[in-house]
Amino acid sequence: THFTSQQLQELEATFQRNHYPDMSTREEIAVWTNLTEARVRVWFKNRRAKWR
């Protein structure tokens, strides 16, 4: 999946605040970024792996 810079900005900003967002937070992010909750969940999983 290719993310727009706007989507990445929103995802990264949320990641800085919370590395493990809950389901409702992921659903909110999905609405803001026009992505599915599953895409958001996978992005956070991959981002945490990169962060370690």
Rank of each mutant, 00 (worst) to 15 (best):
T1Y: 13
T1D: 11
T1A: 11
T1R: 12
T1G: 13
T1E: 12
H2F: 11
H2K: 12
H2Y: 12
H2E: 12
H2I: 09
H2S: 12
H2G: 13
F3H: 04
F3L: 14
F3T: 04
F3W: 07
F3R: 03
F3E: 03
F3N: 03
T4N: 07
T4Q: 04
T4M: 04
T4W: 05
S5F: 13
S5I: 13
S5E: 13
S5V: 12
S5N: 11
S5A: 13
S5D: 12
S5R: 13
S5P: 13
S5Q: 13
S5M: 12
S5Y: 13
Q6D: 10
Q6K: 12
Q6H: 11
Q6Y: 13
Q6I: 11
Q7D: 02
Q7N: 04
Q7R: 03
Q7G: 03
Q7I: 07
Q7K: 04
Q7F: 04
Q7L: 06
L8V: 08
L8E: 10
L8Y: 07
L8D: 05
L8M: 07
L8A: 06
Q9E: 11
Q9S: 10
Q9R: 12
Q9P: 01
Q9V: 10
Q9C: 14
Q9A: 13
E10A: 15
E10S: 13
E10R: 15
E10I: 15
E10V: 15
E10N: 09
E10H: 14
E10Q: 15
E10L: 15
L11I: 02
L11H: 01
L11C: 03
L11P: 01
L11F: 02
L11W: 02
L11N: 01
L11M: 05
E12K: 03
E12N: 04
E12R: 02
E12F: 04
E12C: 05
E12P: 00
E12W: 05
E12Y: 04
A13C: 14
A13L: 10
A13T: 08
A13G: 06
T14M: 15
T14A: 15
T14V: 15
F15D: 01
F15I: 00
F15G: 02
F15K: 01
F15P: 00
Q16L: 10
Q16I: 09
Q16A: 11
Q16P: 03
Q16N: 08
Q16V: 08
Q16R: 11
Q16D: 06
Q16W: 10
R17N: 09
R17Q: 10
R17Y: 08
R17S: 08
R17E: 08
R17G: 07
R17H: 09
R17P: 01
R17C: 14
N18A: 04
N18H: 06
N18R: 03
N18Y: 06
N18I: 10
N18K: 04
N18T: 08
N18E: 06
H19R: 12
H19Q: 11
H19D: 02
H19T: 04
H19G: 04
H19F: 06
Y20H: 07
Y20V: 04
Y20Q: 03
Y20L: 03
Y20T: 05
Y20F: 11
Y20N: 06
P21Q: 01
P21K: 01
P21A: 06
P21H: 01
P21N: 01
D22G: 06
D22V: 05
D22W: 03
D22Y: 03
D22L: 04
D22T: 10
D22Q: 04
M23Y: 14
M23Q: 12
M23G: 05
M23E: 08
M23K: 15
M23T: 08
S24T: 11
S24V: 13
S24L: 11
S24N: 11
S24M: 10
S24R: 14
T25Y: 07
T25D: 08
T25W: 06
T25K: 09
T25G: 05
T25V: 08
R26A: 03
R26V: 10
R26D: 02
R26C: 06
E27M: 15
E27K: 15
E27Y: 12
E27G: 06
E27C: 14
E28V: 09
E28T: 10
E28N: 09
E28Q: 14
E28P: 00
E28D: 09
E28K: 14
E28G: 06
I29A: 01
I29H: 00
I29F: 03
I29D: 02
I29M: 04
I29S: 00
A30M: 03
A30G: 07
A30T: 02
A30V: 02
A30F: 03
A30N: 02
A30Y: 03
A30E: 02
A30K: 01
V31D: 09
V31C: 14
V31W: 09
V31T: 11
V31R: 15
V31E: 13
V31P: 00
V31Y: 13
W32S: 15
W32V: 15
W32Q: 15
W32G: 11
W32E: 12
W32R: 15
W32C: 14
W32L: 15
W32N: 15
T33E: 02
T33H: 07
T33W: 08
T33A: 07
T33K: 01
T33P: 02
N34R: 07
N34E: 08
N34A: 07
N34I: 04
L35I: 06
L35D: 02
L35F: 02
L35C: 07
L35Y: 02
L35Q: 07
L35T: 13
T36M: 03
T36I: 05
T36G: 04
T36P: 07
T36V: 04
T36Q: 04
E37H: 04
E37I: 06
E37R: 03
E37V: 06
E37A: 06
A38N: 10
A38H: 11
A38D: 10
A38V: 11
A38S: 11
R39A: 15
R39E: 15
R39L: 15
R39M: 15
R39G: 09
V40A: 00
V40D: 00
V40K: 00
V40Q: 00
V40H: 00
V40N: 01
V40G: 00
R41H: 07
R41V: 04
R41C: 07
R41A: 10
R41G: 05
R41Y: 07
R41E: 07
V42K: 14
V42C: 15
V42N: 12
V42I: 14
V42H: 11
V42F: 11
V42A: 14
V42Q: 14
W43V: 00
W43E: 00
W43C: 02
W43L: 01
W43S: 02
F44T: 00
F44H: 00
F44C: 00
F44Y: 07
F44S: 00
F44M: 04
K45T: 08
K45R: 12
K45A: 11
K45H: 10
K45G: 05
K45E: 12
N46Y: 13
N46H: 12
N46V: 11
N46I: 12
N46R: 13
N46Q: 13
R47N: 00
R47S: 03
R48M: 05
R48T: 03
R48P: 00
R48D: 01
A49G: 06
A49W: 08
A49Y: 07
A49P: 02
A49K: 14
A49N: 08
K50V: 10
K50E: 13
K50L: 13
K50R: 12
K50P: 03
W51G: 07
W51R: 05
W51N: 07
W51K: 06
W51D: 09
R52S: 07
R52Q: 09
R52M: 09
R52I: 08
R52F: 11
R52C: 11
